[in-house]
Amino acid sequence: GEDLPLPPGWSVDWTMRGRKYYIDHNTNTTHWSHPLESGPSSG
């Protein structure tokens, strides 16, 4: 998808195989999909 801006506290990194993933430092979790690309989340 597009390179959307990341929310505060997020960063992007790549695996050893070159796969892009996103790090949420607020909750110390990692995600394969961009936080703003996922569907609407409630709460």
Results as ranks from 00 to 15, higher is better:
1 G>Q: 12
1 G>L: 12
1 G>M: 11
1 G>Y: 12
1 G>S: 14
1 G>P: 12
1 G>T: 13
1 G>D: 13
2 E>M: 11
2 E>R: 10
2 E>F: 11
2 E>G: 10
2 E>Y: 10
2 E>P: 12
3 D>V: 10
3 D>F: 10
3 D>Q: 10
3 D>C: 06
3 D>A: 10
3 D>R: 09
3 D>M: 10
3 D>K: 09
3 D>H: 10
3 D>N: 10
4 L>V: 09
4 L>P: 15
4 L>F: 08
4 L>E: 10
5 P>L: 09
5 P>I: 07
5 P>D: 14
5 P>E: 10
5 P>C: 00
5 P>R: 09
6 L>T: 01
6 L>F: 02
6 L>I: 06
6 L>W: 00
6 L>Y: 03
6 L>R: 05
6 L>G: 00
7 P>E: 03
7 P>I: 01
7 P>H: 00
7 P>N: 00
7 P>K: 01
7 P>R: 01
7 P>V: 00
7 P>Y: 01
7 P>M: 02
8 P>R: 06
8 P>N: 07
8 P>T: 08
8 P>G: 05
8 P>Y: 08
8 P>W: 08
8 P>M: 08
8 P>I: 08
9 G>S: 03
9 G>M: 04
9 G>W: 06
9 G>R: 02
9 G>N: 07
9 G>E: 01
9 G>V: 00
9 G>F: 06
9 G>I: 00
9 G>P: 00
9 G>Q: 03
9 G>Y: 05
9 G>K: 03
10 W>G: 00
10 W>N: 00
10 W>Y: 01
10 W>A: 00
11 S>E: 09
11 S>L: 03
12 V>T: 07
12 V>G: 03
12 V>Q: 07
12 V>A: 07
13 D>T: 07
13 D>S: 12
13 D>R: 11
13 D>P: 00
13 D>Q: 14
13 D>I: 07
13 D>M: 13
13 D>G: 15
13 D>A: 15
13 D>E: 15
14 W>N: 05
14 W>H: 09
14 W>K: 08
14 W>D: 04
15 T>G: 04
15 T>I: 03
15 T>K: 01
15 T>W: 03
15 T>Y: 03
15 T>F: 03
15 T>L: 02
16 M>S: 15
16 M>Y: 14
16 M>R: 14
16 M>I: 15
16 M>A: 15
16 M>H: 15
16 M>N: 15
16 M>V: 15
17 R>Y: 15
17 R>E: 15
17 R>M: 15
17 R>F: 15
17 R>C: 15
17 R>A: 15
17 R>P: 07
17 R>L: 15
18 G>F: 04
18 G>D: 05
18 G>M: 03
18 G>W: 05
18 G>Q: 03
18 G>S: 01
18 G>R: 03
19 R>G: 07
19 R>Q: 15
19 R>Y: 13
19 R>H: 15
19 R>N: 11
19 R>L: 12
19 R>K: 13
19 R>P: 04
20 K>P: 11
20 K>H: 03
20 K>Y: 03
20 K>I: 09
20 K>T: 04
20 K>D: 02
21 Y>D: 01
21 Y>M: 05
21 Y>T: 01
21 Y>K: 05
21 Y>R: 04
22 Y>P: 00
22 Y>S: 00
22 Y>R: 00
22 Y>I: 01
22 Y>T: 00
22 Y>F: 08
22 Y>D: 00
23 I>M: 06
23 I>K: 06
23 I>F: 08
23 I>T: 08
23 I>A: 01
23 I>H: 05
24 D>R: 01
24 D>V: 00
24 D>A: 02
24 D>S: 02
24 D>L: 02
24 D>F: 02
24 D>Y: 02
25 H>G: 07
25 H>L: 07
25 H>F: 06
25 H>T: 07
25 H>S: 07
25 H>V: 04
26 N>W: 06
26 N>V: 07
26 N>G: 05
26 N>H: 07
27 T>Q: 05
27 T>L: 04
27 T>M: 05
27 T>I: 01
27 T>A: 03
27 T>W: 03
27 T>Y: 04
28 N>Y: 05
28 N>E: 07
28 N>C: 11
28 N>H: 11
28 N>F: 05
28 N>Q: 09
28 N>G: 14
29 T>S: 07
29 T>V: 05
29 T>M: 06
29 T>E: 06
29 T>K: 06
30 T>I: 15
30 T>S: 09
30 T>R: 14
30 T>H: 11
30 T>Q: 09
31 H>Y: 09
31 H>A: 04
31 H>W: 09
31 H>F: 07
32 W>Q: 04
32 W>V: 04
32 W>H: 04
32 W>G: 02
32 W>S: 05
32 W>M: 05
32 W>F: 08
33 S>M: 10
33 S>N: 14
33 S>T: 14
33 S>W: 11
33 S>P: 03
33 S>H: 15
33 S>I: 14
33 S>D: 10
34 H>L: 08
34 H>F: 06
34 H>T: 03
35 P>E: 03
35 P>K: 02
35 P>T: 03
36 L>P: 05
36 L>S: 09
36 L>G: 08
36 L>Q: 06
36 L>D: 07
37 E>F: 11
37 E>I: 13
37 E>H: 11
37 E>W: 12
37 E>Q: 13
37 E>D: 10
37 E>N: 10
37 E>S: 14
37 E>Y: 11
38 S>I: 12
38 S>D: 10
38 S>Y: 11
38 S>W: 11
39 G>M: 12
39 G>A: 13
39 G>I: 11
39 G>K: 12
39 G>F: 13
40 P>V: 13
40 P>I: 13
40 P>A: 12
41 S>W: 09
41 S>P: 14
41 S>C: 14
42 S>H: 14
42 S>N: 13
42 S>K: 14
42 S>T: 13
42 S>D: 13
42 S>I: 13
42 S>E: 13
43 G>M: 12
43 G>C: 11
43 G>E: 13
43 G>R: 09
43 G>Q: 12
